[in-house]
Simulated assay, not measured.
Amino acid sequence: MTTPISISRRSALGVLAGSLLAGAARAETGAGAGADLGGVTLRVAYYKGGWRPLLQAAGEDKTPYRIDWKELNNGVLHIEALNGDALDIGSGSEIPAMFAARQNAKVRFIAVTHEDLNTQVTVAAKDAPIRSIADLRGKRVGYVRATTAHYFLARQLEEAGLSFADIEAINLTPSDGYSAFASGKLDAWAIYGYNGRLAIAKQGARVLKTGVGYLSGNFPIYANPKAVDDPLRHAAVTDFLLRVQRAYAFANRNFPVYAAAVAADTHLPVEDLLDQFAHRSEDYALAGVTPDVPETHQRVADTFLKLGVLDVRTEVGKFWDTSFNEAIAKGAAKLATL
């Protein structure tokens, strides 16, 4: 399915080395851990049930800077807001990040989160005569363009000997997709996050496939270059990343507490969230930018080129920034001692 990775480990390391040098230059002249961040405001996008309730549940929400939270439940929207200088931090999958690189958007990728890939699902309507991906031929299938749903659906279809040309593919936002699925206008739906969980819990959707085996598990954290380059905001972003890192570790150990916060934010049944966590593909985590991260991202971009979604080959490596790596590694080392 995927084309060979043509970005070599040496070239990836070169990109990362250059980014490290830039980060070191910032550290020599910029603010550090003791900086006064009282006058800083970070504009942070989050998904319903995501970072905001996570930090609150873990007691990590009392920051020395102000956070202007913006709920944006689509990675493409995060990228657009960052590119328009309306946001400082966002997140999403490798796919919106890939399109951002193709458009040379004003964005950097500064870390990755690892999350449960079982929340990335292709589901069939409760009464639809669909038992496998092969049964999607000729059916009305919703998806979200330029997201993980687009990517894993394409790979699942090809694995079954099909393509987008063999289905009635309908591009919908997550909320519009849920409405269409609930009203019977879709036979199946490729979706991620709480909308997929709602479809299963409330609409009796049946899971055909999850994202396991189709997605890398790397979900980039996006940043505004202005925030990365400004010493005070760089320090605030560093603090924010470490709070998310600690909050994920808290959630892994105390998931019922986080589940209650997610349920309050999404109205999903706590029991369903606990069951999902019990069957998770991996623990929550926040990690730095290791050399394999841009390599894996390049594989995704090359796949979309093969699918004809991208018009030219897109090099994603130069958008990855490693200036937060040292702080993230130190944070992980502290957590490992707990």
Rank of each mutant, 00 (worst) to 15 (best):
A190N: 06
R197N: 10
W189A: 04
R197F: 10
A188I: 05
V212H: 06
K202E: 09
G193Y: 02
R206P: 01
W189P: 00
Y194M: 14
G184W: 10
G217F: 13
S179F: 12
S216Q: 10
N171C: 05
N195E: 15
D176A: 15
K209N: 06
L198N: 12
A180K: 03
G217Y: 13
N195G: 05
G213A: 07
W189M: 09
S179C: 03
K209L: 06
S175G: 12
W189Q: 03
G196C: 08
G211N: 07
N171W: 04
G217P: 03
G193T: 01
D187H: 06
S183Y: 08
G211R: 08
R197T: 07
D176L: 14
S175A: 15
Y194H: 15
A182N: 14
Y192M: 15
N195D: 14
A180N: 07
D187A: 09
N171M: 03
K202P: 00
A190E: 04
Y178C: 04
N195Y: 15
R206A: 03
W189D: 00
A205H: 04
S216R: 09
A190T: 07
L215M: 13
I200Q: 14
L198C: 09
V207W: 05
Y192A: 15
S216K: 10
D187K: 01
Y178F: 15
W189N: 01
S175C: 05
A180I: 04
S179Y: 13
K202T: 07
A205T: 02
T210V: 11
Y214L: 14
N195P: 00
G193K: 01
